[in-house]
Design a protein around this nucleic acid. Structure first.
Length: 282
DNA sequence: GGGCTCATCGAAGGTTAACA
DNA sequence: TGTTAACCTTCGATGAGCCC
């Protein structure tokens, strides 16, 4: 299978009036946002297919295998960017790791990622503006494009983030969503995600908080924090060269032995074995 | 729905040692 | 030096029962 690389922080490409997709199933080492400017067809990510039409947007994460089957003449807009771009302070958010995590943990399934109607109507003019700047090459066009690209990425992350946790249903309270969001924002600071601290933050008693969280999400706070932290650690192991000690520090573990114990309990294997086996060439 | 108390359990911390 | 494992201790989270 063909694998593509990105040799710059981000790149933009507009491909118009395609009748046949020039690429078969392939993977990248970067993120790719695909926006359908016009046309219809089928999109395939990791052997799951769904139909696309004008206004649909897809996020292809690194390692996802994807392809398109074109039915009616289609015009695509591609925005490609790497982990390095996210981490390079180009995006001015106070939580780049979270942004990176949200994008990395998009559901890896086909289908439009824009769930929010307001954002759908926001994205279209944003992309039009990017294309306009990209084509006209007026002064400061590079700076303008970068700002527009950053806005696009944050809007996409917001849409993924809002609908990401599988334990959140339609019945879930606004407050429960806020608690989930609070936990995600503070996953690197164990002292901030203790029941005592969260209960004070949200104005509920400690004893009620646990019961409330379970009722809203069908899992205990401990379970949620553990699984969220596990995903983050897996991501670090797979997509970074961080040493165990660095991961330990980042996630607030006492030492490597506790990270090892935590990981083994959840995954059944040690973090080192997981990293080696997952990076083994197939 | 929301709060309190209390017993229980398990996760996390601390330490040490072995091994590559 | 980095990683893993084992053991013991501490303490926080949870669930049950009750009340408003």
């Amino acid at each position: 299978m063909k694998r593509e690389n990105l040799h710059e922080p981000f790149s933009i490409e507009v491909i118009e009036t395609l009748d046949v997709c020039p690429k078969s199933g392939h993977t990248h080492n970067f993120f790719e946002l695909v926006y359908i400017l016009s046309g219809t067809g089928t999109q395939c990510i990791n052997n799951n297919t769904s139909r696309y039409h004008e206004g649909h947007m897809f996020l292809i994460t690194p390692e996802d295998c994807h392809s398109f089957q074109i039915e009616t003449t289609t015009s695509f807009f591609f925005l490609r960017f790497s982990n390095i771009y996210l981490q390079s302070n180009s995006i001015h958010t106070d939580n780049v790791q979270r942004l990176e995590f949200i994008l990395q943990n998009a559901n890896h399934q086909p289908g439009c990622i824009l769930k929010n109607q307001v954002d759908k109507s926001l994205v279209h003019p944003l992309i039009e503006a990017v294309i306009r700047e990209y084509v006209n090459r007026d002064c400061y066009n590079r700076e303008l494009i970068q700002h527009l690209v950053n806005t696009l990425i944050v809007v996409v992350a917001r849409n993924i983030s809002k609908y990401m946790p599988q334990q959140v249903g339609e019945q879930t309270d606004e407050k429960a969503l806020d608690i989930l969001s609070y936990i995600q924002n503070n996953i690197y600071y164990p002292e901030k995600i203790r029941t005592e601290v969260i209960s004070k933050e949200f104005g509920v008693s400690e004893s009620y908080l646990g019961r409330y969280f379970k009722r809203q999400t069908n899992e205990t706070m401990q379970q949620y924090v553990s699984s969220y932290r596990m995903k983050m650690i897996e991501h670090r192991l797979l997509h970074s060269d961080m040493r165990m000690g660095e991961i330990v520090t980042e996630f607030g573990f006492t030492d490597e032995s506790h990270l090892n114990k935590f990981f083994r309990k959840n995954k059944g294997i040690s973090p080192t074995v997981f990293r080696k086996s997952s990076r083994m060439p197939v």
